[in-house]
Design a protein around this nucleic acid. Sequence first.
RNA 1: GCGGCGGUCGUCUAGCCUGGACUAGGACGCCGGCCUGCCAAGCCGGAGGUCCCGGGUUCAAAUCCCGGCCGCCGCACCA
Length: 581
Amino acid sequence: MAEDKYSKIMELAKRRGFFWPSYEIYGGVAGFYDLGPYGVLLKNRIVEKWRRFFVADHSNYVVEIETPIIGPDKVYIASGHVENFTDPIVECLKCGRKFRADHLIKNALGIDVEGATPEEMTNIIRENNIRCPVCGGPLGEVRTFNLLFKTQIGPYEGNTGYFRPELAQGMFVAFKRVYEAMRSRIPLGIAQVGRVGRNEISPRQAMMRLREFNIMEMEYFMDPEDPEGSCPFFYRRENARLRILPYNLKVEGGEPVEYTVAEAVDEGVIIHRCLAYWMAVANDFIQSIGVPYSEIYFEEKGPKERAHYSSQTFDQLVRVSRWGWVEVSGHSYRGDYDLSRHMKFSGQDLTVFKPYPEPRVETRTEYFVDKAYVGRTFKSRAREVFRLLEGVGQEELARAVREGKPLKLGDIIIPPDAIKTKNVKVKISGKKYIPHVVEPSFGVERVVYVAFEHAYREKEGRVILSFPRDIAPVQVAVLPLVEEEPLLKKAMDVYHLLRESGFYAVYDDTGSIGKRYARYDEIGVPAAVTIDFQTLEDDTVTVRDRDSWRQVRVPVTVLPEKLKLYINGASLEELGEPVNS
RNA sequence: GCGGCGGUCGUCUAGCCUGGACUAGGACGCCGGCCUGCCAAGCCGGAGGUCCCGGGUUCAAAUCCCGGCCGCCGCACCA
């Protein structure tokens, strides 16, 4: 069992201003957390890194949008959340356990009560004397519980709005607009970072399960008939390795198995290469925030564990000290569920057009009524007959011919032999279809917490947050060796130089130098620049590495460029001459 | 929502069982001054506490009792 870092992290996070429970002065409210000054910096860097991996690195195919957090009820009726997020719940009056009322009735009586009102279900339970399946106690009234936060849009009752429980609907609803703005090309990834709300029954585990949190998500739209073309960058990660626990292995209690991305697709472990590709990106992303490969795996969800829209889902799990494996992202194949639903509920055409490489010419037989016959037969009423014939489809004409029965239009009767046929050539240049969707979706706060877990360490009784340098909240601390002029002025100059060069830097001259090094180790600042007496002679400073505590001496003139290399991963020794201490 | 355990300066904690001398003590951190020539040094001074909230018992409650809130653990829940 790994040591429990949880309480140490929570203590540090509160004390140093990373995060803490919200509304503390009013006693707190479960499921809400504030991010403090360093927490916000850290979160922003993590989000920025996610953008690099998922958006910028695929900028020809992936774009980012922002949509409102409150949506009209229609959107969430169409998405299925109003229906599927509302559970009829009944509580045992004796032991207090809660059950799904519909499941209870089905198990007890074998009848399906889908669509029944809570009152009807309560009556069924009373009439059949259904008791608590655990303790045998009596059951209370059936109530509905919905995880959606509900509100009103504008002053009118009944104009219901919901706080979005996921970002996805924003992308689906705006899909057509984005698709056209991005010059109607598929595949197209639409990404978004933002807040969502889920009214969890009992949130717990600090930042791991919140009622309001941030998600980084992408809906990747593609042609289901063209798996190859859907993932033009597949080759870039086809040999990447993933640890996967397929559902069939999971139920047997098996361990994750390592596959390359290509193997997982070829062997059918992952049903679509796009799903596999983005899982590989997720794997790289989570490693880049400091989690080792061996502490990550993907677990397939079983049919009943999946969301209502998904045909395959993997959770990306990361090991943390207190709770074992926790979910940091979900990877779902959503098919065309969402777009189809929005087409149906909005009446809008959300299909895309796929041109064929070569327009196809098809020959079709068309039926038509002989105009000469109509004119001859109906004379002055002919015009009226033509108008009536406009409402008659090919189907009907064909049937009349096939069955040899006359066509009746009110009192007008047209015999089958007045219906002629002709062969016409039709040019078909493509077809319409509803794109399928693959969705990688990350919980931001979980990633933040996981970054903490893997950054936290202790050395010689001191705490160090060894964040990867490029997500560290503060990048560099500028410290005069002692609180004495002209060191202070020189240090200020260096501080301003670094700020102007784009670094997030802090300046600190209080207490002893050792105390300040310790202070910045504890908030994870990767580099400490010290201005000492030699600086006054040759304009060089020392750069100290947070993790090794080693130092090198660097001329101030090249400090910004050297530090930039360092933040991006260069070793300390690449920056300058080692200082012997 | 149920059950178990817990909640005391910013943080960690002593005190609670056995009510009173607690004006709630300490450590770290924080602020100011002196000092400090490279890894939480030292000295002086300072700020900081609704003892989670509400009610009850009592002459007297951080301490006992009840309710609530919050946290952790187990159960249920977690599209």
